[in-house]
Design a protein around this nucleic acid. Structure first.
Lengths: 192, 192
DNA sequence: TTTGAATTTGACTGTTCAGTCAAATTCATG
DNA sequence: CATGAATTTGACTGAACAGTCAAATTCAAA
Protein backbone atom coordinates (compact mmCIF):
# COMPACT_ATOMS: atom_id res chain seq x y z
CA UNK A 1 0.00 0.00 0.00
CA UNK A 2 2.08 2.94 -1.25
CA UNK A 3 1.87 6.16 0.74
CA UNK A 4 1.98 9.66 -0.76
CA UNK A 5 5.64 10.07 -1.66
CA UNK A 6 7.34 13.34 -0.97
CA UNK A 7 10.30 12.42 -3.15
CA UNK A 8 7.99 11.82 -6.08
CA UNK A 9 6.45 15.27 -5.73
CA UNK A 10 9.84 16.91 -5.38
CA UNK A 11 10.93 15.16 -8.55
CA UNK A 12 7.96 16.25 -10.65
CA UNK A 13 8.21 19.79 -9.29
CA UNK A 14 11.92 20.10 -9.98
CA UNK A 15 11.52 18.52 -13.41
CA UNK A 16 8.81 20.90 -14.53
CA UNK A 17 10.71 23.92 -13.33
CA UNK A 18 14.01 22.91 -14.90
CA UNK A 19 12.53 21.75 -18.20
CA UNK A 20 10.45 24.90 -18.48
CA UNK A 21 13.34 27.13 -17.46
CA UNK A 22 15.84 25.54 -19.81
CA UNK A 23 14.67 22.73 -22.08
CA UNK A 24 13.92 19.04 -22.05
CA UNK A 25 17.16 18.14 -23.77
CA UNK A 26 19.28 20.38 -21.59
CA UNK A 27 17.84 18.97 -18.38
CA UNK A 28 19.57 15.80 -17.22
CA UNK A 29 18.22 13.23 -14.81
CA UNK A 30 21.23 13.91 -12.59
CA UNK A 31 20.42 17.61 -12.40
CA UNK A 32 16.76 16.96 -11.60
CA UNK A 33 17.78 14.55 -8.85
CA UNK A 34 20.22 17.07 -7.38
CA UNK A 35 17.62 19.81 -7.30
CA UNK A 36 14.99 17.50 -5.83
CA UNK A 37 17.51 16.11 -3.33
CA UNK A 38 16.76 12.60 -4.43
CA UNK A 39 19.29 9.95 -5.35
CA UNK A 40 19.21 8.59 -8.87
CA UNK A 41 18.38 5.11 -7.64
CA UNK A 42 15.20 6.51 -6.10
CA UNK A 43 14.39 8.29 -9.32
CA UNK A 44 14.35 5.01 -11.21
CA UNK A 45 12.37 3.41 -8.43
CA UNK A 46 9.54 5.89 -9.10
CA UNK A 47 9.89 6.51 -12.82
CA UNK A 48 11.01 4.28 -15.61
CA UNK A 49 12.57 7.05 -17.68
CA UNK A 50 13.03 10.77 -18.04
CA UNK A 51 10.08 11.06 -20.42
CA UNK A 52 7.96 9.11 -17.95
CA UNK A 53 8.79 11.71 -15.32
CA UNK A 54 7.97 14.53 -17.71
CA UNK A 55 4.50 13.10 -18.33
CA UNK A 56 3.92 12.81 -14.59
CA UNK A 57 5.17 16.36 -14.05
CA UNK A 58 2.75 17.74 -16.63
CA UNK A 59 -0.07 15.76 -15.11
CA UNK A 60 0.64 17.04 -11.63
CA UNK A 61 0.91 20.61 -12.86
CA UNK A 62 -2.29 20.32 -14.85
CA UNK A 63 -4.20 19.27 -11.75
CA UNK A 64 -3.17 22.51 -10.03
CA UNK A 65 -3.86 24.60 -13.12
CA UNK A 66 -7.29 23.16 -13.53
CA UNK A 67 -8.41 24.32 -10.10
CA UNK A 68 -7.32 27.87 -10.93
CA UNK A 69 -8.92 27.78 -14.37
CA UNK A 70 -12.19 26.56 -12.88
CA UNK A 71 -12.19 29.63 -10.66
CA UNK A 72 -11.22 32.07 -13.40
CA UNK A 73 -13.67 30.64 -15.92
CA UNK A 74 -16.48 30.17 -13.45
CA UNK A 75 -19.89 30.57 -15.16
CA UNK A 76 -20.81 33.04 -12.41
CA UNK A 77 -18.35 35.51 -13.98
CA UNK A 78 -19.39 37.47 -17.10
CA UNK A 79 -17.80 35.75 -20.13
CA UNK A 80 -15.53 38.55 -21.34
CA UNK A 81 -14.49 39.20 -17.77
CA UNK A 82 -13.35 35.57 -17.59
CA UNK A 83 -11.00 36.15 -20.48
CA UNK A 84 -9.73 39.41 -19.04
CA UNK A 85 -9.00 37.73 -15.71
CA UNK A 86 -7.26 34.86 -17.45
CA UNK A 87 -4.90 37.21 -19.29
CA UNK A 88 -4.28 39.18 -16.13
CA UNK A 89 -3.55 36.04 -14.19
CA UNK A 90 -1.21 34.64 -16.85
CA UNK A 91 0.65 37.91 -17.08
CA UNK A 92 1.18 38.14 -13.36
CA UNK A 93 2.22 34.55 -13.09
CA UNK A 94 4.86 34.95 -15.78
CA UNK A 95 5.99 38.22 -14.22
CA UNK A 96 6.51 36.54 -10.88
CA UNK A 97 8.49 33.72 -12.46
CA UNK A 98 10.58 36.23 -14.34
CA UNK A 99 11.56 37.81 -11.05
CA UNK A 100 12.57 34.41 -9.74
CA UNK A 101 14.60 33.19 -12.67
CA UNK A 102 15.22 36.22 -14.84
CA UNK A 103 13.48 35.01 -17.95
CA UNK A 104 10.05 35.04 -19.55
CA UNK A 105 9.23 31.37 -19.90
CA UNK A 106 6.00 31.45 -21.91
CA UNK A 107 3.84 28.35 -22.04
CA UNK A 108 5.52 25.11 -20.91
CA UNK A 109 3.24 23.01 -23.08
CA UNK A 110 4.20 24.96 -26.15
CA UNK A 111 7.92 24.98 -25.45
CA UNK A 112 8.15 21.34 -24.44
CA UNK A 113 5.68 20.17 -27.05
CA UNK A 114 7.48 21.82 -29.88
CA UNK A 115 10.79 20.37 -28.70
CA UNK A 116 9.82 16.76 -28.20
CA UNK A 117 6.85 16.19 -30.51
CA UNK A 118 8.88 14.33 -33.14
CA UNK A 119 10.67 12.16 -30.58
CA UNK A 120 8.62 11.34 -27.51
CA UNK A 121 5.20 10.04 -28.47
CA UNK A 122 3.78 9.64 -24.95
CA UNK A 123 4.83 13.13 -23.99
CA UNK A 124 3.39 14.59 -27.19
CA UNK A 125 0.05 12.91 -26.56
CA UNK A 126 -0.14 14.14 -22.98
CA UNK A 127 0.61 17.69 -24.09
CA UNK A 128 -1.97 17.51 -26.84
CA UNK A 129 -4.56 16.27 -24.37
CA UNK A 130 -3.94 19.13 -21.94
CA UNK A 131 -3.94 21.72 -24.72
CA UNK A 132 -7.29 20.47 -25.94
CA UNK A 133 -8.78 20.69 -22.48
CA UNK A 134 -7.46 24.20 -22.05
CA UNK A 135 -9.09 25.20 -25.32
CA UNK A 136 -12.42 24.12 -23.83
CA UNK A 137 -12.33 26.97 -21.31
CA UNK A 138 -11.99 29.56 -24.07
CA UNK A 139 -14.68 27.90 -26.09
CA UNK A 140 -17.30 28.09 -23.35
CA UNK A 141 -16.45 31.70 -22.53
CA UNK A 142 -16.81 32.65 -26.20
CA UNK A 143 -20.01 30.68 -26.58
CA UNK A 144 -21.50 32.44 -23.57
CA UNK A 145 -20.33 35.84 -24.79
CA UNK A 146 -21.98 35.22 -28.14
CA UNK A 147 -25.20 34.06 -26.46
CA UNK A 148 -25.29 37.27 -24.44
CA UNK A 149 -24.72 39.32 -27.56
CA UNK A 150 -21.37 40.69 -26.33
CA UNK A 151 -19.49 39.49 -29.38
CA UNK A 152 -20.32 38.02 -32.75
CA UNK A 153 -19.05 34.45 -32.86
CA UNK A 154 -21.57 32.05 -34.34
CA UNK A 155 -18.88 29.35 -34.52
CA UNK A 156 -17.49 29.43 -30.97
CA UNK A 157 -15.19 26.49 -31.57
CA UNK A 158 -13.48 28.14 -34.51
CA UNK A 159 -13.23 31.47 -32.71
CA UNK A 160 -11.70 29.81 -29.66
CA UNK A 161 -9.15 28.06 -31.83
CA UNK A 162 -8.18 31.31 -33.50
CA UNK A 163 -7.81 33.06 -30.16
CA UNK A 164 -5.85 30.12 -28.81
CA UNK A 165 -3.37 30.20 -31.70
CA UNK A 166 -2.86 33.90 -31.19
CA UNK A 167 -2.25 33.51 -27.46
CA UNK A 168 0.11 30.59 -27.89
CA UNK A 169 2.01 32.42 -30.58
CA UNK A 170 2.35 35.47 -28.38
CA UNK A 171 3.53 33.37 -25.44
CA UNK A 172 6.18 31.70 -27.58
CA UNK A 173 7.39 35.02 -28.96
CA UNK A 174 7.49 36.47 -25.45
CA UNK A 175 9.71 33.56 -24.46
CA UNK A 176 12.01 33.86 -27.44
CA UNK A 177 12.35 37.62 -27.09
CA UNK A 178 12.38 37.43 -23.29
CA UNK A 179 9.87 40.27 -23.40
CA UNK A 180 6.92 40.38 -21.09
CA UNK A 181 5.52 43.50 -22.73
CA UNK A 182 4.28 41.48 -25.69
CA UNK A 183 1.67 40.03 -23.36
CA UNK A 184 0.43 43.43 -22.24
CA UNK A 185 -1.54 44.00 -25.43
CA UNK A 186 -3.02 40.53 -25.67
CA UNK A 187 -6.40 41.37 -24.17
CA UNK A 188 -7.19 44.41 -26.33
CA UNK A 189 -5.92 42.61 -29.42
CA UNK A 190 -7.84 39.50 -28.56
CA UNK A 191 -11.13 41.35 -28.88
CA UNK A 192 -11.28 40.84 -32.61
CA UNK B 1 42.05 33.08 -49.58
CA UNK B 2 39.47 30.42 -48.61
CA UNK B 3 37.43 28.90 -51.36
CA UNK B 4 33.73 28.02 -51.13
CA UNK B 5 33.71 24.92 -48.98
CA UNK B 6 31.41 22.09 -49.83
CA UNK B 7 31.87 20.48 -46.44
CA UNK B 8 30.75 23.65 -44.72
CA UNK B 9 27.55 23.77 -46.76
CA UNK B 10 26.85 20.11 -46.15
CA UNK B 11 27.26 20.73 -42.43
CA UNK B 12 24.88 23.68 -42.26
CA UNK B 13 22.37 21.85 -44.43
CA UNK B 14 22.46 18.67 -42.37
CA UNK B 15 22.34 20.66 -39.14
CA UNK B 16 19.27 22.62 -40.10
CA UNK B 17 17.44 19.55 -41.27
CA UNK B 18 18.25 17.48 -38.21
CA UNK B 19 17.62 20.23 -35.67
CA UNK B 20 14.34 21.14 -37.32
CA UNK B 21 13.31 17.51 -37.68
CA UNK B 22 14.15 16.57 -34.12
CA UNK B 23 15.51 19.25 -31.79
CA UNK B 24 18.68 21.11 -30.96
CA UNK B 25 19.33 19.09 -27.83
CA UNK B 26 18.63 15.76 -29.50
CA UNK B 27 20.98 16.50 -32.39
CA UNK B 28 24.59 15.64 -31.65
CA UNK B 29 27.65 16.92 -33.46
CA UNK B 30 28.53 13.33 -34.28
CA UNK B 31 25.17 12.75 -35.92
CA UNK B 32 25.44 15.94 -37.95
CA UNK B 33 28.91 14.94 -39.10
CA UNK B 34 27.72 11.47 -40.08
CA UNK B 35 24.85 12.85 -42.13
CA UNK B 36 27.06 15.48 -43.77
CA UNK B 37 29.80 12.90 -44.40
CA UNK B 38 32.35 15.08 -42.67
CA UNK B 39 34.76 14.00 -39.98
CA UNK B 40 34.48 15.66 -36.60
CA UNK B 41 37.92 17.16 -36.90
CA UNK B 42 36.77 19.01 -40.00
CA UNK B 43 33.69 20.16 -38.17
CA UNK B 44 35.80 21.90 -35.56
CA UNK B 45 38.03 23.30 -38.27
CA UNK B 46 35.05 25.22 -39.66
CA UNK B 47 32.99 25.89 -36.54
CA UNK B 48 34.02 26.51 -33.00
CA UNK B 49 30.97 24.88 -31.45
CA UNK B 50 27.58 23.35 -32.10
CA UNK B 51 25.79 26.63 -31.44
CA UNK B 52 28.18 28.37 -33.81
CA UNK B 53 27.11 25.93 -36.51
CA UNK B 54 23.46 26.50 -35.71
CA UNK B 55 23.86 30.24 -36.19
CA UNK B 56 25.58 29.66 -39.52
CA UNK B 57 22.87 27.21 -40.57
CA UNK B 58 20.12 29.73 -39.84
CA UNK B 59 22.04 32.40 -41.70
CA UNK B 60 22.49 30.23 -44.77
CA UNK B 61 18.84 29.23 -44.75
CA UNK B 62 17.71 32.82 -44.30
CA UNK B 63 19.63 33.85 -47.40
CA UNK B 64 17.65 31.34 -49.46
CA UNK B 65 14.36 32.25 -47.80
CA UNK B 66 14.89 35.91 -48.45
CA UNK B 67 15.10 35.43 -52.19
CA UNK B 68 11.79 33.59 -52.16
CA UNK B 69 10.14 36.14 -49.89
CA UNK B 70 11.28 38.97 -52.14
CA UNK B 71 9.48 37.27 -55.01
CA UNK B 72 6.32 36.49 -53.05
CA UNK B 73 6.13 39.94 -51.48
CA UNK B 74 7.09 41.81 -54.62
CA UNK B 75 5.44 45.27 -54.72
CA UNK B 76 4.22 44.41 -58.23
CA UNK B 77 1.79 41.93 -56.66
CA UNK B 78 -1.46 43.21 -55.06
CA UNK B 79 -0.90 43.32 -51.27
CA UNK B 80 -3.50 40.77 -50.19
CA UNK B 81 -2.41 38.50 -52.99
CA UNK B 82 1.11 38.61 -51.50
CA UNK B 83 -0.22 37.23 -48.23
CA UNK B 84 -2.29 34.57 -49.96
CA UNK B 85 0.72 33.43 -51.94
CA UNK B 86 2.84 33.35 -48.82
CA UNK B 87 0.39 31.08 -47.00
CA UNK B 88 0.08 28.89 -50.05
CA UNK B 89 3.83 28.62 -50.40
CA UNK B 90 4.35 27.83 -46.71
CA UNK B 91 1.67 25.20 -46.77
CA UNK B 92 3.10 23.47 -49.80
CA UNK B 93 6.62 23.62 -48.43
CA UNK B 94 5.58 21.97 -45.16
CA UNK B 95 3.52 19.42 -47.06
CA UNK B 96 6.51 18.45 -49.15
CA UNK B 97 8.69 18.09 -46.05
CA UNK B 98 6.02 16.02 -44.39
CA UNK B 99 6.17 13.59 -47.27
CA UNK B 100 9.93 13.36 -46.87
CA UNK B 101 10.14 12.87 -43.14
CA UNK B 102 6.63 12.04 -42.02
CA UNK B 103 6.12 14.98 -39.71
CA UNK B 104 4.80 18.53 -39.82
CA UNK B 105 7.78 20.56 -38.68
CA UNK B 106 6.31 24.07 -38.36
CA UNK B 107 8.63 27.02 -38.18
CA UNK B 108 12.27 26.23 -37.40
CA UNK B 109 12.82 29.64 -35.84
CA UNK B 110 9.97 29.12 -33.44
CA UNK B 111 10.89 25.58 -32.49
CA UNK B 112 14.59 26.25 -32.10
CA UNK B 113 14.12 29.67 -30.53
CA UNK B 114 11.76 28.43 -27.90
CA UNK B 115 14.11 25.59 -27.05
CA UNK B 116 17.38 27.46 -26.73
CA UNK B 117 16.39 31.02 -25.83
CA UNK B 118 17.31 30.66 -22.17
CA UNK B 119 20.64 28.95 -22.89
CA UNK B 120 22.27 30.07 -26.11
CA UNK B 121 22.44 33.84 -26.33
CA UNK B 122 24.04 34.12 -29.76
CA UNK B 123 21.53 31.74 -31.26
CA UNK B 124 18.63 33.55 -29.62
CA UNK B 125 19.79 36.88 -31.02
CA UNK B 126 20.16 35.50 -34.52
CA UNK B 127 16.68 34.03 -34.39
CA UNK B 128 15.24 37.27 -33.10
CA UNK B 129 16.92 39.19 -35.89
CA UNK B 130 15.50 36.93 -38.60
CA UNK B 131 12.04 36.98 -37.06
CA UNK B 132 12.06 40.77 -37.04
CA UNK B 133 13.06 40.90 -40.68
CA UNK B 134 10.36 38.45 -41.59
CA UNK B 135 7.82 40.63 -39.84
CA UNK B 136 8.81 43.46 -42.15
CA UNK B 137 7.36 41.66 -45.16
CA UNK B 138 3.96 41.40 -43.51
CA UNK B 139 4.13 44.98 -42.39
CA UNK B 140 4.66 46.37 -45.87
CA UNK B 141 1.93 44.20 -47.36
CA UNK B 142 -0.52 45.38 -44.72
CA UNK B 143 0.52 48.99 -45.10
CA UNK B 144 -0.05 48.78 -48.85
CA UNK B 145 -3.38 47.03 -48.39
CA UNK B 146 -4.51 49.78 -46.05
CA UNK B 147 -3.34 52.48 -48.45
CA UNK B 148 -5.35 50.89 -51.24
CA UNK B 149 -8.41 50.71 -48.98
CA UNK B 150 -8.52 46.90 -49.08
CA UNK B 151 -8.41 46.57 -45.31
CA UNK B 152 -8.67 48.88 -42.32
CA UNK B 153 -5.32 48.94 -40.57
CA UNK B 154 -4.23 52.43 -39.60
CA UNK B 155 -1.44 50.94 -37.45
CA UNK B 156 0.20 48.56 -39.92
CA UNK B 157 2.99 47.65 -37.49
CA UNK B 158 0.56 46.53 -34.79
CA UNK B 159 -1.59 44.65 -37.28
CA UNK B 160 1.42 42.87 -38.71
CA UNK B 161 2.52 41.82 -35.24
CA UNK B 162 -0.91 40.44 -34.45
CA UNK B 163 -1.00 38.50 -37.69
CA UNK B 164 2.53 37.25 -37.06
CA UNK B 165 1.68 35.95 -33.59
CA UNK B 166 -1.32 34.13 -35.00
CA UNK B 167 0.68 32.54 -37.79
CA UNK B 168 3.52 31.50 -35.51
CA UNK B 169 1.08 30.08 -33.00
CA UNK B 170 -0.63 28.08 -35.70
CA UNK B 171 2.68 26.76 -37.01
CA UNK B 172 3.72 25.63 -33.55
CA UNK B 173 0.40 23.93 -32.94
CA UNK B 174 0.61 22.24 -36.33
CA UNK B 175 3.99 20.88 -35.30
CA UNK B 176 2.86 19.69 -31.90
CA UNK B 177 -0.27 18.06 -33.27
CA UNK B 178 1.50 16.89 -36.42
CA UNK B 179 -1.51 18.22 -38.28
CA UNK B 180 -1.14 20.09 -41.54
CA UNK B 181 -4.85 20.85 -41.72
CA UNK B 182 -4.52 23.56 -39.09
CA UNK B 183 -2.70 25.60 -41.71
CA UNK B 184 -5.48 25.23 -44.26
CA UNK B 185 -7.65 27.83 -42.59
CA UNK B 186 -4.93 30.35 -41.89
CA UNK B 187 -5.62 32.61 -44.85
CA UNK B 188 -9.39 33.01 -44.32
CA UNK B 189 -8.84 33.47 -40.57
CA UNK B 190 -6.05 35.92 -41.13
CA UNK B 191 -8.40 38.34 -42.86
CA UNK B 192 -9.55 39.84 -39.56
C1' DT C 1 8.56 -7.18 18.28
C1' DT C 2 8.51 -9.39 14.10
C1' DT C 3 7.69 -9.32 9.23
C1' DG C 4 7.49 -7.89 4.67
C1' DA C 5 6.87 -4.19 1.70
C1' DA C 6 8.25 0.54 0.45
C1' DT C 7 11.95 3.41 -0.04
C1' DT C 8 16.73 5.00 -0.04
C1' DT C 9 21.51 4.69 -0.90
C1' DG C 10 25.82 4.85 -3.38
C1' DA C 11 28.65 2.54 -6.19
C1' DC C 12 28.60 0.76 -10.66
C1' DT C 13 28.23 0.00 -16.14
C1' DG C 14 28.63 1.15 -20.72
C1' DT C 15 27.56 4.73 -23.95
C1' DT C 16 27.52 9.08 -25.98
C1' DC C 17 28.88 13.53 -25.73
C1' DA C 18 31.67 17.88 -27.08
C1' DG C 19 35.90 19.12 -28.13
C1' DT C 20 41.35 18.45 -29.22
C1' DC C 21 45.31 17.43 -31.82
C1' DA C 22 49.29 16.17 -34.66
C1' DA C 23 49.97 14.27 -38.75
C1' DA C 24 48.52 13.45 -43.48
C1' DT C 25 46.64 15.06 -47.63
C1' DT C 26 44.85 18.23 -51.13
C1' DC C 27 45.15 22.27 -53.72
C1' DA C 28 46.10 26.85 -55.81
C1' DT C 29 49.59 29.36 -57.63
C1' DG C 30 54.14 31.20 -58.60
C1' DC D 1 57.62 21.13 -59.49
C1' DA D 2 57.96 23.72 -55.18
C1' DT D 3 55.80 25.93 -51.45
C1' DG D 4 52.70 27.16 -48.08
C1' DA D 5 48.03 27.46 -46.95
C1' DA D 6 43.56 25.07 -46.71
C1' DT D 7 41.48 21.00 -45.57
C1' DT D 8 40.93 16.22 -44.01
C1' DT D 9 41.76 12.35 -41.13
C1' DG D 10 41.31 9.30 -37.21
C1' DA D 11 42.67 8.48 -32.89
C1' DC D 12 42.27 10.50 -28.55
C1' DT D 13 40.47 12.80 -23.82
C1' DG D 14 37.61 13.49 -20.07
C1' DA D 15 33.14 14.66 -18.71
C1' DA D 16 28.30 13.87 -18.71
C1' DC D 17 24.89 10.84 -19.83
C1' DA D 18 20.90 7.33 -18.90
C1' DG D 19 20.09 3.53 -16.59
C1' DT D 20 21.14 -0.75 -13.10
C1' DC D 21 21.64 -3.12 -8.90
C1' DA D 22 22.30 -5.32 -4.40
C1' DA D 23 22.38 -4.00 -0.05
C1' DA D 24 20.80 -0.95 3.62
C1' DT D 25 17.22 1.42 5.83
C1' DT D 26 12.58 2.99 7.04
C1' DC D 27 7.99 2.13 8.09
C1' DA D 28 3.22 0.35 8.78
C1' DA D 29 0.65 -2.91 10.69
C1' DA D 30 -0.03 -7.57 12.62
Amino acid sequence: MPRTSNAKERLTGAALRMIWGHSYGATSVDAICDKAKVKKGSFYYFFKSKSDLAVAALDADWKEQRAQLDTIFSPTVPPLERLRRYFEFSFEHLQQIKEECGAVLGCPLNALGSEVCTQETALREKIQEILERKLTYFESAIRDAHAEGLIVAPDAKAKAKTLFMFIQGTLTQARIQNNLELLRDVYPCALD
